[in-house]
Amino acid sequence: MKRVWVHVGLIAFSAYILLPILWIIRTSFVPESMSYSSSLMPGFTLDNFAALLNRRNFGNSLLRSLIVSLGATLIALPFAAATGFAFARYRTGGNLGRFLVLATQMLPAIVLVLPTFTIFRSLGLTNSIFGLMIVYAALNLPFLTWILMGFFEGIPVELEWAAMIDGANPWTAFWRVVIPVSLPGLASAGILGFIMAWNEFIFALILTGPATATVPVSLAALQTQNGIRIADVSAGVVLAVIPLAIIARYAQRFIVSGLTFGAVK
């Protein structure tokens, strides 16, 4: 009997989380005119997706988001690896250095947006996906450093020692032993960085224009003077989530190891 109640509780909780998502998926496939209908599936259409991709160039937003998120991650990752390694192995900067890395994450994004905008405008980097890429790389750097630091701390120093005694200088030992051994850590850090960049809204809103908008900005733009076109928004959300869903499906192992590394050594 007790087990039944446990299951009832879990089902209710799952429904609480899943129903809004399922409802968005349902709405994305329902004709615009029946979006707010209370019936479960009052028709089926792909028009919402077609409209979004054709009339609103949502495909371009997806492509831009992909480029910006990938680019930002690829820029940040090598720096984060080098910094994380220095923190982990040489204790560079001591505890204060580590705290400062973490402290950058305590600032609300909104505090950084306006100065960033001012600087980027004078550099001519507003309304440019390259500018946004640089911002995301900078925003992700401390977080990725933190994750990789935990990963590197889990690698026994004897591995590097063994490489050095085998004839490798510290750089060769890092490149040929530490990096290959850390690939799961680099992958999980990269994936988390990609997801953060993909979902970022406030900097994208301020730093991009209609021609350079990323997915979150384009989705927000579906809210017009005539109200919210809920069918379009639902279709947009579905399209925006697909890449993340694929990543989550195939890279879950890495993400979990990235989030828990250093916690359980």
Partner: peptide, 16 residues
């Protein structure tokens, strides 16, 4: 160490 021409076996083996 890389120029000392020594070899070392570690307690935790330290295999790559």
């Amino acid at each position: 160490p890389w120029n000392r021409d020594i070899a070392m076996v570690f307690q935790n083996y330290a295999l790559y």
